Amino acid sequence: MDINKLKQEVIEYSKEIGIDKIGFASADVFSELKERLKRQQTLGYQSGFEKGSVDERTEPTRLLPEAQSIISIALAYPSRMKDAPKSTKEERRGIFARASWGIDYHVVMREKLDKLADFLKEKVPDVSNRVMVDTGELSDRAVAERAGIGFSGKNTAIITPEFGSFVYLGELITNIPFLPDSPVEDSCGDCTKCLDACPTGALVQGGQLNAQRCIAFLTQTKDFLPDEFRTKIGNRVYGCDTCQVVCPKNKKVDFHHHPEFEPDHEIAKPKLKPMLRISNREFKNTFGSIAGSWRGKKPLQRNALIALGHYKDITAVEEVIEVMQTDPRPVIRGTAAWSLGKIGTERAYNAIHEAMKKEKDEQVIYEMEKGLAFEKEASRS
């Protein structure tokens, strides 16, 4: 078997099926990453969403014992929404991060990688492959960096020369010993724009992220959002793009290669008030096809309530009161009370006082007290 010829055939086929960039890496242990992950664990910087042990995340042969190399691919996604709808005083909108625009990228990426795997199977019948997209044990970014897709920026994203950091990543572990490509030179230089712009200081230093403070992570949690972050998430319903948007490498970067990733305006920038009363079926029908739906509707509804408070949306008061009074979930009732206090109308405060007389959950009562604290602040000013 001519490995070099096969590699070129794989590259050509990847173009035919719409892969924007492809690279090849060895299946050696990711030793540097292993040490970094251990430090992250020690510091408590991990999100908890990571799959597998540190060894599984850094040793490809634990996932495919006969692994010889890894094929890394990248698909570019849009950074700008054409004719994006605007928030109005009557209809405030939230925003999903760009990585959740369009069809769930896991589905699209896996389809491309499966086609690559099938292509290799045709060429090498006894080939062994394993496909991974984000939810697998391997670090997509570490593989992409080794494969020459791009370099790991100070914002911890892979930055490609062609598409900036607005790319989805996935990989195919294989027992074919492809010749590895050369890594891309790091060109962040002295720039610290991403570190300076991070709303919560989650980027503790270049290339190191405290996921527990990252808005992209926080918007996906299901419990009460800690107070210090509520004023930071603004109208973000899911995810955060700040560290990518400010990156000079992303200036004027906007690719629309894949129709699947084009945003539906009413999903990517949803009206906030309707999100409060959406049923499970409506949620699945509306948001089920996007990546941002994977945690269910609860975190998104909580974030929508915080966003309405952020906007001080007087038009939402009655609907938020109804949520506070009737929703069976303490996190949603409590966040609604906080939001009402943030909006700050007399009607909102009176409703909190009344609901507080009937509320049994201590956490919800605590949130109601927070809501009423805004009333005291307003009376002093």
Rank of each mutant, 00 (worst) to 15 (best):
A316N: 03
P65L: 13
Y238N: 14
C198F: 11
G164V: 11
H106G: 01
E266Y: 08
G234A: 06
R302T: 10
L169E: 02
G164S: 11
V54G: 10
S289W: 12
K271N: 07
V133A: 07
G334L: 06
A348G: 00
T219A: 07
G170R: 04
D241C: 10
H256D: 08
R80P: 00
N285T: 15
I176R: 10
F49Y: 14
K232S: 13
P299S: 00
I159G: 07
Q244E: 12
G164P: 12
H256R: 07
I73Y: 09
S31L: 11
Y349I: 02
I267W: 00
T156V: 14
K86T: 07
A216S: 15
M324L: 15
Y13S: 02
I314Y: 03
H265W: 06
K252H: 14
P177A: 06
G23K: 07
L179T: 13
M81N: 01
A373V: 00
G136M: 01
R302W: 10
A373L: 11
R92G: 01
R93E: 04
G296W: 06
D104P: 03
K34A: 12
K86M: 07
D264A: 10
G102Q: 08
C243S: 10
F49G: 04
I343R: 06
F163M: 09
S87R: 08
R39M: 01
E56W: 06
G164Q: 07
A76M: 05
P270E: 13
S381D: 12
Q46F: 09
F151C: 12
T135Y: 05
T192R: 14
W338S: 02
E91H: 09
L276W: 01
A27I: 11
G18Q: 09
S293A: 15
N129R: 00
D134F: 05
A142E: 15
E367P: 00
D134G: 05
